[in-house]
Computed example of a mutant assay.
Amino acid sequence: MRQKVGYCTAPDAVKLAYAVHGSGPPIVRVATWMTNLEFDWDSPVWRHWLDALGDGHTLIRYDERGCGLSDRDVDDISFDAWVADLEAVVDAAGVDRFALLGVSTGVAVAVEYAARHPERLTHLVLYGGYARGRELRGASERRLQDALIAAISAGWTNPDPTFRHLFSMLFLPAGTAEQMGWYDDLQRKSTSAATAVRIYNARGRINVVDTAAQVRTRTLVVHPADDRVVPIGEGRLLATLLPDARLVELDSANHIMLSDDPAWPRFVSELRDFLGTKPVTARPGVEELSRRELEVLELVAAGLTNEAIAERLSLSIRTVERHLTNTYVKLRVSGKAGRAAAAARFSEANQH
């Protein structure tokens, strides 16, 4: 599976990068906090999302203004600009009717688009999002907003990831060292500290509480129950504001659902049931692995490093690496995201 990257122009002449992959009914994913279309493609944090969403669907996603492959130096960072960017990408991609997916900070933009363009949408899926930004949620949330902005200003461009790691721990509390390290790097590679502050400030002022009542598209709202970035109460509020919404609470603390998260298979199942589609790619399963390969993969799925696995199983590190190489070949996964994809396959198999 490959992605095709293209460019379009927003109403204020900002160049936006968007990517398309997969085949089938289209899904448009609204841009969210910190993306880079090329860097995300082999990501241990996002690649399983891209594989699942592009299996039986055409997935269209884009880097928001100021980030990734889109123009970095922009004058306008605002909610209205984000909605106009989504409109520009949809038009450039040439899709007529489609399912719209909002993730995290992209949820409010998706709600606004749905209210303005109901004729374009077949389904609306909102994951881990909110109808009101931190500035509208009370004094404690405003203090947290200020603290996170201070962390961005202090350490965003520093080679030492200490300050950026704060976001990784919030977004991926159950993440492995590899996943957190990748997310640390993503932030620095996506945008500048100054732009990140502007984006975060604009996110804090978001308010689609009244707009949500105007949405007429059938909606699936999904939220991790122990989300540390967006409290579950915000997801519940969002679901009550939308006229035709169903709320699914996932047993997870990860704001970004990871491939080895036990709740990931349920999310994919709920999504496919809602969209009425099935995967079309036949994937080899873990039943093709040897007993020792399964033992190694089980420990990978539990978050252990190769060194820890070698010690646990009384093997050499080289032998663990050889078992993993064979596993990746059998499961047809590769690249930097191969480890996470294999772990996800193991977790899925053990859900049944």
Rank of each mutant, 00 (worst) to 15 (best):
Q3Y: 05
K4S: 07
C8H: 05
P11A: 06
D12N: 09
V14H: 04
G22E: 01
S23Q: 10
G24K: 07
I27P: 00
R29Y: 01
R29D: 04
A31H: 13
T35L: 11
S43I: 00
H48S: 03
W49K: 05
L50W: 10
L53Q: 10
L59Y: 08
I60W: 10
I60L: 13
C67T: 15
G68K: 14
L69W: 08
R72W: 14
R72D: 13
F79R: 11
F79Y: 14
W82P: 07
V83Q: 13
L86G: 11
D91H: 13
D91S: 14
A92K: 13
R97M: 07
A99Q: 03
L101M: 03
L101F: 06
L101G: 05
T105N: 01
A108S: 14
V109F: 03
E112A: 15
H117K: 08
Y127I: 12
E135H: 13
L136I: 06
L136Y: 09
R137G: 04
R137E: 07
G138C: 14
S140M: 11
S140D: 13
E141F: 15
A151L: 08
A154L: 08
H165D: 08
L166A: 03
F167S: 00
L170P: 08
G175R: 07
D185T: 00
D185R: 00
Q187V: 01
Q187W: 02
R188L: 05
K189V: 00
Y200D: 01
R205I: 03
D210T: 07
Q214P: 00
R216H: 01
R216E: 02
T219F: 04
T219A: 11
L220C: 09
H223T: 10
P224S: 09
P231C: 03
E234D: 13
L238E: 07
L238N: 10
A239M: 11
T240M: 08
V248P: 11
E249L: 14
D251H: 11
A253Q: 08
A253D: 10
L258G: 03
L258N: 10
S259I: 04
W264N: 09
R266E: 06
E270V: 00
L271W: 06
L271S: 09
L271G: 11
F274L: 03
L275E: 02
T277R: 07
K278S: 13
T281N: 04
A282H: 13
R283L: 09
R283F: 00
G285E: 06
V286Y: 06
E287S: 14
E288S: 12
L289N: 12
L289S: 08
L294R: 15
E295A: 12
L297A: 08
L297D: 06
V300N: 04
A301H: 03
T305W: 00
A308K: 14
I309Q: 06
A310Y: 05
S314R: 12
S314I: 05
S316I: 03
R318W: 09
V320W: 04
V320I: 11
V320S: 08
R322S: 03
L324R: 14
T325D: 13
T327F: 12
T327E: 09
V329D: 12
L331E: 10
L331P: 09
S334F: 04
S334N: 07
K336D: 02
K336M: 02
A341R: 14
A342L: 13
A349F: 15
Q351W: 15
